[in-house]
C-alpha cells in the first residue's frame, strides 16, 4: 500500500511530532515499505488462529487494593516548569 504525504502529516499531527518536509518524504517511503510487509502478512491464512493480545504467553497478575504510595508531590513537582498552590500550571486550555 502506498502512503501519501497527507497520511504522514496527519499521523505526525496526531502524535504531536514536528516533521520537516524532507523527513516527511523519507517517512512516506519507509512507512510504505512497512505496510507492504504487512500486506504480505495479510496473505497468510489465519483461520482458526486466535488474535494475539500480548506477545508474552502469560496472564495479568493482580495486586491487592491497598494504598501503598505516600505523598511525594514536592519531589515530583521539582521538574515541572510551573506550579502554584500544589497545581501543575500549563498553557491555558480553552474548553
Amino acid at each position: 500500500m502506498a502512503l501519501e504525504d497527507s497520511h504522514v502529516r496527519r499521523a505526525a499531527h496526531l502524535a504531536r511530532l514536528a516533521v520537516s518536509d524532507d523527513q516527511a518524504s523519507d517517512f512516506v517511503e519507509d512507512l510504505s515499505r512497512i505496510l507492504d510487509m504487512v500486506d504480505q502478512l495479510q496473505g497468510v491464512n489465519t483461520d482458526g488462529v486466535a488474535p494475539l493480545a500480548h506477545p508474552l504467553d502469560a496472564t495479568q497478575r493482580l495486586r491487592a487494593d491497598e494504598v501503598t504510595e505516600t505523598d511525594q508531590r514536592d519531589t515530583f513537582q521539582r521538574c515541572a516548569p510551573a506550579v502554584e498552590n500544589g497545581l501543575y500550571l500549563v498553557p491555558r486550555v480553552v474548553e
Binding site: Y88, V90, E95
Partner: peptide, 14 residues
C-alpha cells in the same frame, strides 16, 4: 483542569 485565572494559565490536579 482548573480554569480559574492562574496568570493566564490552567492549573492541573492529577
Amino acid at each position: 483542569s482548573l480554569h480559574e485565572d492562574f496568570h493566564g494559565m490552567t492549573g492541573i490536579d492529577l
